[in-house]
């Protein structure tokens, strides 16, 4: 008899339907997401292009340093804002800033970085403008926001580290970061592999430490890093060889992950400061 009741309940449950309003809301979310995706991809392309360049430069480190070491030249490395593009009509907002770096001894590198900043910003602006009109016509009540900007992470006698980020908000938000660390004295752009001895397994050493930290934080502070294997979520296994990083004020290495890369979005963009003791054996 109870089984019969269970069947009835199941039928009642299945008769619950979503309102038309919810369907429309979901349609809008889907539509807006496609647009923002376009903007993010545009910026991602620019970042990838830059990545290739850094790779090429690294293969000839003598070249980069050779220029930087010309005697008698003082390096005054600084970052400033070059261009700014702003729109805010209450529903749609964009704040796109073009960073500009100065004072590197390697002028070719400096130009290359600045060109990339400009190209990325232009691409974000162009994509935003194109999609902005379309969405505004179709969904005047929609909200979207995009910000391409930078912040200084470290600025002391030795190091300038900046975070160039693309933030987009469509209901929830996502942020993509690209860090640049520059040694002021040599004017060189620091890459992650360049911090370690040749052939050192820095990916393994750093990954092992970060994984243990994730587990510790999950247990101690109820954080939600993805460390367990599941059918649906790829658990964190190791960092990328060119993982986002910077050097902080004390010169410590900080490894960073994008939102959704290793944990749910609520945890933002997690960062791990690597203690000196972990890497002293393999540090260059």
């Amino acid at each position: 008899m109870r089984i019969h009741q269970l069947e009835e309940l199941k039928t009642a449950y299945e008769n619950i339907k979503a309102r038309k309003q919810l369907k429309e809301r979901i349609d809008k979310i889907m539509k807006r997401h496609s647009v923002m995706k376009g903007i993010v991809n545009a910026a991602a392309v620019a970042i990838v292009v830059f990545g290739v360049f850094v790779g090429a430069l690294n293969s000839v480190p003598a070249f980069a340093q050779g220029i930087a070491n010309i005697g008698g030249m003082e390096s005054v490395v600084s970052i400033l804002t070059f261009g700014r593009y702003q729109i805010n009509d209450g529903h749609f907002s964009a704040n796109i800033v073009t960073p500009h770096i100065e004072g590197l001894l390697d002028k070719a590198l400096q130009n290359k970085i600045n060109n990339d900043f400009e190209e990325s910003a232009d691409l974000v602006i162009a994509t935003f403008e194109k999609e902005y009109k379309e969405i505004k016509e179709q969904y005047p009540e929609a909200h979207m926001g995009v910000e391409y900007n930078y912040q200084v992470l470290t600025d002391n006698d030795d190091i300038l580290a900046i975070d160039v980020y693309l933030f987009n908000a469509v209901g929830s938000s996502s942020t993509k970061h690209k860090f640049y660390t520059i040694r002021k004295k040599t004017g060189e752009l620091v890459t992650l592999p360049s911090l370690f001895k040749e052939n050192a397994d820095y990916v393994g050493v750093l990954s092992e430490y970060i994984l243990s930290e994730m587990k510790r934080l999950n247990a101690a502070e109820e954080r939600m890093f993805w460390v367990e294997a599941g059918e649906y979520i790829e658990p964190f296994a190791k960092i990328k060889s060119e993982q986002n990083f910077y050097l902080n004020h004390d010169g410590d290495l900080v490894i960073s992950f994008d939102k959704y890369e290793v944990a749910p979005g609520a945890m933002g963009s997690p960062q791990f400061v690597i203690p000196e003791s972990i890497i002293k054996e393999i540090k260059r």
Binding site: A18, R19, Q21, L22, R25, I26, I29, M30, H33, V170, G171, S172, S174, E231, Y232, I233, E234, K259, Y260, P264, G265
Partner: peptide, 19 residues
């Protein structure tokens, strides 16, 4: 309705994790 909307947004942002 809020939960479904938020879930859709989250899902869209993490489609890469759907193996």
């Amino acid at each position: 309705e809020d939960v479904v909307s938020q879930s859709v947004i989250k899902a869209l942002s993490s489609l890469g994790q759907l193996r």
